[in-house]
Design a protein around this nucleic acid. Sequence first.
DNA 1: TCATTTTTTGAGTGATCCGAAAACAATTCT
DNA 2: AGAATTGTTTTCGGATCACTCAAAAAATGA
Lengths: 202, 202
Amino acid sequence: MTDSQRPRGRPRAFDRDEALKTAMLLFWRHGYDGVPVAQLATAMGIAPASLYVAFGSKEALYREAVRFYLSLGRLGIERLQESASAKEGVHAMLRSAAKAFTQPDLPPGCMVGVGALRCAGENRVIEEATAELRRLSAKAVHLRIERARREGELGKDVSPQALTDFFSAVVEGMSVLACDGACRERLLHMADTAMAAWPVVD
Amino acid sequence: MTDSQRPRGRPRAFDRDEALKTAMLLFWRHGYDGVPVAQLATAMGIAPASLYVAFGSKEALYREAVRFYLSLGRLGIERLQESASAKEGVHAMLRSAAKAFTQPDLPPGCMVGVGALRCAGENRVIEEATAELRRLSAKAVHLRIERARREGELGKDVSPQALTDFFSAVVEGMSVLACDGACRERLLHMADTAMAAWPVVD
DNA sequence: TCATTTTTTGAGTGATCCGAAAACAATTCT
DNA sequence: AGAATTGTTTTCGGATCACTCAAAAAATGA
């Protein structure tokens, strides 16, 4: 009863998490429309049919891959709520993003930001699901900034919405710059520059 | 000699510029990989073969479409050099972008920013060509900011590169926010917020 | 009228798209 | 040992991919 019994049928011959990581990298680099299932299967070292048994469909695989990406937590969004001040938290988030978007052995930019921005008409649902993840990240920033306003870190005249939109845009923009070849130092310098827009208390 | 003689063969039955505009809208909305040639031809009201005669290939059509998009000049980049101050010029550029990215009857965001960020491996050249256009826009901002530093509008301690990267990121980020459904007023408010990062003179 | 030039379309190229069916293989349970 | 379950592969479908060819159509020049 204590130990889980082994699964019934033939055991899977490949590492499911490793395969998921492979899919994540391909979607990250080439976008949803830019990766055919055959390419995914080949990179995973399995036949397309095995991919369907293990993950269901290309769409389901993408959704799982992007959740896997977010679970890595390299964007520093979850640490936002623990930060002593919103300003410090946002600054740390920008610097984390700058580093995450320029990891040497990973695709540049943010998988959520660039992987499925625009899709073919029949994949509209993928576009929308990915946009929802971006809105979710923005929501976390929004919550921290609103709290800062309640606690007096920010003046009552500042708009949490505008400030949230601004820093969300900076992160997404960093992602694009990274895709265009900007190095880590440039992005870090740019992040510091962006923080100058933080409102001063009256 | 003054009037050009009529072309020799059978006249084209469709308006080439109108067809180009149609292609621009589709690439803008769905990205390069997200629009098949058949869809382009159908939207243009012609057969695929006519498309190839008129434009050469899907890649050539895209390149022409994106040049057409830039020729509309709704991003306010060319007015940057004429502006009295770099600060005013950049601010006007951000506000122009906010409006351009939220035109009611056009796709959201920037065609250059979101239309071909990530492509299939065989379309790498499309990615690179589009990235080059983004770098070209950034170069215009860079030039104006460097001039401002020479003329004393900016202190010698500010980094033109970092400031350029920052405002480029804001524009690209606005483009993503627009794709996610942000309205014009939010983007305009965000643009004003971003200008707070403009360095103060010592 | 007739050759020349260019655009038109329908049909079709091989390749690739996502996904499914079927047969076989490897494991557990009875 | 044999049934049940699940993963494996090969193969295949029907659709779609970017693109091309051949022949007809519509204009000009002689």
